[in-house]
């Protein structure tokens, strides 16, 4: 087995991509503008075989971001100790440059629903999510980043804005934030709010990573636009524009291109990373 001693302490403020096994040889041959990779934690919780072997190779060469999709941080129940233990095992041997999870829930009463489900924003959920994040950070022995969700609907039970909820979470837990700019655009369109105002009131000093991805377009029951966070196509121009505005506030931040369904050939994904690279370079000049 290869030595996977820690090589990378942090993600560089450069483009990264969500790693897909079909791109392994392309990435090892010529990663182009891609300077780091993100994996979904749950795909690397097997005992061995090709997934783990490939990850060990990649970790020799690239900083890795571990992105969880199954902790259910927004869940009403306690976090699943078995899943936390599996996550800790992965984090301990891989020693990734970053770990992030979602402001969402996905497990209820032993059922894992394989989707990022919404949380109302109020004092009850704030206390619960903060407790869960503190638990995760204590258990893993590291800071985590929390990602803003894509919203399709609103809760009558919400009493505060998402940005204020996230700021409160940071204040209570000292976690960092993963700002998904596509999610901001999707949520703002779906909620009839202004994405630029959202970015302007976001606590940008805590942003450790940005996500960009594609979405699908649909209509709701009343004919209003309904955007769906699908990660199945290119990032659209209005999201690139919102990204440019975002990094003008945050400064250079590690920026991930997410493409999880209908995954394209490597050159198409690399071209998206090129676009992020150009935006980051323009900022530095």
């Amino acid at each position: 087995m290869l030595d996977t001693s820690p090589c990378f302490d942090a993600l560089p403020a450069k483009p990264g991509v969500g790693y897909k096994p079909q791109h392994f040889s392309d990435i090892m041959k010529d990663p182009g503008p891609v300077c780091w990779l993100e994996i979904h934690a749950e795909n690397y919780m097997g005992d061995g075989g090709r997934p783990i072997a490939q990850l060990k190779h990649l970790a020799q060469r690239f900083p890795i971001s571990v992105h969880g999709v199954g902790l259910s941080i927004g869940g009403e129940a306690q976090l699943d100790p078995d899943h936390l233990a599996r996550l800790k095992h992965l984090i301990d041997w891989l020693n990734p440059a970053s770990f992030s999870e979602h402001l969402a829930w996905s497990t209820h009463d032993t059922h894992f629903l394989n989707d990022l489900l919404p949380v109302p924003y109020n004092e009850t959920s704030l206390a619960r999510v903060a407790d869960h994040i503190k638990h995760v950070q204590d258990f893993l022995g590291r800071q985590m980043l929390l990602e803003n969700p894509s919203n399709y609907l609103a809760f009558e039970a919400s009493t505060m804005a998402e940005v204020d909820f996230l700021a409160q979470i940071v204040a209570r837990t000292e976690c960092g934030l993963l700002l998904d700019v596509n999610n901001v655009f999707v949520s703002a369109t779906n909620q009839h709010t202004d994405p630029v105002s959202y970015i302007n009131s976001f606590p940008v000093e805590y942003v450790g990573e940005i996500h960009l991805g594609g979405h699908d377009e649909d209509k709701d029951d009343h004919g209003a636009p309904l955007l769906i966070d699908s990660h199945g196509c290119e990032v659209v121009d209005p999201v690139w524009a919102l990204y440019a505005h975002t990094i003008s506030r945050t400064g250079p931040v590690p920026t991930l291109i997410e493409w999880d369904t209908d995954v394209p050939e490597w050159p198409i994904l690399a071209a998206e990373a090129d676009r992020a690279d150009a935006a980051l370079a323009a900022l530095v000049q």
Binding site: Y152, L153, F155, N190, D220, H222, I228
Partner: peptide, 20 residues
Amino acid sequence: GLLDPKGLPTPKRFAVYRNN
């Protein structure tokens, strides 16, 4: 208690989660 921005009930929006 699930609403769209106009405060209307929202079957198609909930269906996004069902479908996912």
